[in-house]
Nucleic acid binder design. Structure first.
Lengths: 208, 208
DNA sequence: TCAAAATCCCCCCAATAGGGTGATATCTCG
DNA sequence: CGAGATATCACCCTATTGGGGGGATTTTGA
């Protein structure tokens, strides 16, 4: 026995919604069990749909897609959420992922890729459009041209972990005064004069 | 005129290295300009190869792949690095990406996907194997069952930004003593008694 | 060989962190 | 409705910290 993957679509544009429904419904092994034009609409009955995967748009009337994610998660803890949107701003992407989305596709994604991604999400993958994946990877990467030396960077990291000077000194097997000295240089280079500002500046410039 | 994508392979296993060379060399538009069995070996002449993309293994004799990334970046600032390895530990993956890798594929990746990924990397994408992508996405996600209340989470975030109690109080428009009180509750719930430990525990459990 | 980096040392003092022990108002959920 | 969680504020204490000064020496890398 082969069970279909149960899919719900939340998308306000009727044309797109029906397009996806048709596309996915045609595909062997996939079943669109319901579709809604807003989260507020979906919230009432979506638990009865018992979907495996929800295709979710970001721009929705009322509750937007980002806000909808944690609520959907609460309604359906074991359902995967796949974002399908035109939004490509970094903020939106990271919010969506942080809120619990399992994948993020932009709307120019080819039909076959969408269908594949639904399967992928259900199999524990994390499908992303190429440009999204690039942004995600970039978010991990440090600034290569940091003004800070290795040691300074290392110490700044520990500061960002909330460690006191003495703890840092102990953990790095150096003197308390050395830590102090490094911190002074860090402040000089970053043109700040407090831990909070140093961390802020460092994060903004991806130094840590 | 169509220019080939210039590729260099750094991989210690001869069989695999020759396999990739053959596979990629056969493909229209791709040229393997050189291959090495270690970074230390490659370092001497790789700048002459002038590659667009480097396929890099993690487990290498001498300098390992992770350490090799920043050095390759220094030698060839405009070259993309694509990791191709059996390693799937979270630590390795995030280190590789943080060090400047543009993509991360595991060795069970189908041949066609490898070839596609090279193109993708050159076009500004960030190819990842499905399981890698899942880990990367998961790394963005918070623990849904945090013991901390919203306010406590918010305050813990500010602590992780290096802010002092008084700064937090000012920014949240609450009394210094209230901040204190929240922090005490955070410490209670996390069973810690310092900022550093709170941040550590919180990060381990993805509470922030 | 020469500059940058890393290491260590001293002064000062206000601010901070963390421990203890409370109170009160609101909110939420069964 | 009522218990428990949450958010707010108060005052006690003291050791530690953080940041601003001023320096010096050694190690390292290009």
């Amino acid at each position: 026995m082969s069970k279909n993957i149960r899919i719900v679509i939340i998308e306000d544009d009727q044309i797109i919604r029906e397009g996806y429904t048709l596309l996915i419904g045609q595909t062997e092994g996939y079943a669109v069990v319901n579709s809604y034009e807003s989260f507020d609409d979906a919230a009432k009955t979506i638990t009865d749909d018992n979907p495996d995967v929800i295709l979710l748009d970001i721009e929705l009337p009322g509750t937007n897609g980002i806000q909808a994610i944690p609520r959907l998660k609460r309604l359906l803890p074991h359902t995967y959420i796949l974002i399908l949107t035109v939004y490509e701003s970094e903020k939106t992407i990271f919010e969506a992922l942080a809120n619990g989305a399992s994948g993020y596709l932009t709307k120019n994604t080819p039909a076959t890729r969408i269908v594949d991604s639904i399967r992928e999400v259900k199999d524990g993958g994390g499908p992303m459009s190429v440009n999204i994946a690039r942004m995600v990877i970039k978010s991990f990467q440090r600034n290569q041209e940091s003004p800070l030396s290795k040691r300074e960077t290392q110490i700044l990291e520990q500061i960002a972990e909330g460690k006191s000077r003495s703890l840092i000194a102990r953990d790095l097997f150096i003197d308390l005064e050395t830590v102090r000295s490094h911190i002074k240089n860090i402040y000089l280079k970053l043109d700040v004069n407090s831990r909070a500002d140093a961390i802020k500046t460092a994060k903004e410039n991806k130094l840590i």
